[in-house]
């Protein structure tokens, strides 16, 4: 396959960015999207041009480090995947592909296609955990947990923190991300003890970090590589209201 790439280039956080066009040729349809980017960068290095910076690490869809808006979609034109799992067979020979970073006020661009997602860490630091120290905890089977609840908690816990939900949301809201953690812990007896303070603190931190509000359009759910359901936002809202009634 021969392709034209329209790639966002931005020297640093404060510089003005713009699109540059690069060509890549002879790409096998079985190549992954990021391997195609590797080929592009190898060409740039040979031409003496600085390669395009982009985040990536595990390249198997679990670390959440890769991002990229490809042809207007977070993680590109396929469902339930991250960009590293996207393969070139999803594109046509001769196609022009537009590659952009996540765009959200809370995720400032660092360079080219790399963005800063530290705001996600800060939200979780505000309460996305169970406050237990190492040691001195009960036996793992001391508290039975229904299979349905455990499975649903697991559905929420599969969030990889990539930020596709924020990048896709017209309000740049982080509700799907925040609700996944709140919901996971609200479903488990271990997490219930701190449920109220967790819901309030994490929501307050989300607002503080500059994420927008949720208007329940569901775009986040569509683009989530792990298929995390909007139902977790409903549970988060319920947890939050419950907590407010107790104030």
């Amino acid at each position: 396959m021969d392709l034209t790439l329209k790639v966002w280039r931005q020297a640093n956080a404060t510089a003005k960015g713009k699109f540059e066009q690069y060509k890549v040729n002879d790409i096998s349809p079985d190549t992954s999207f990021l391997e195609m980017m590797d080929v592009m960068n190898e060409n740039l290095i040979q031409q003496g041009v600085e390669p395009v910076a982009f985040d990536h690490d595990c390249r198997e869809g679990i670390c959440g480090m890769c991002s990229l808006f490809v042809n207007g979609r977070a993680h590109g034109p396929d469902d339930d995947i991250t960009t590293c799992q996207l393969h070139m067979r999803k594109f046509k020979d001769g196609e022009t592909i537009t590659i952009e970073p996540w765009r959200a006020a809370a995720f400032p661009v660092i360079k080219d296609l790399m963005v800063d997602r530290a705001a996600f860490d800060k939200i979780l630091q505000a309460g996305g955990f169970v406050s237990v120290n190492t040691g001195g905890v009960p036996d793992a089977n001391a508290i039975p947990i229904g299979k349905a609840e455990a499975d649903e908690a697991m559905d929420a816990a599969t969030c990889i923190g990539c930020g596709a939900c924020v990048a896709t949301c017209k309000n740049s809201s982080a509700m799907l991300f925040v609700s996944a953690k709140v919901s996971q812990l609200a479903l488990l007896p271990q997490g219930k003890i701190e449920a109220k303070r967790r819901a309030k603190n994490m929501l307050a931190k989300m607002d503080e970090m500059g994420f927008g509000s949720c208007s329940n359009t569901g775009a986040c759910e569509v683009e989530c590589p792990k298929g995390i359901s909007l139902a977790h936002i409903a549970r988060f809202n319920r947890e939050f209201i419950k907590a407010k009634f107790n104030d």
Partner: peptide, 14 residues
């Protein structure tokens, strides 16, 4: 295993 369950790790259950 005890520690992880206490942290809210959703292990598979019967």
């Amino acid at each position: 295993i005890d520690q992880c369950v206490a942290q809210g790790v959703p292990f598979a259950r019967e």
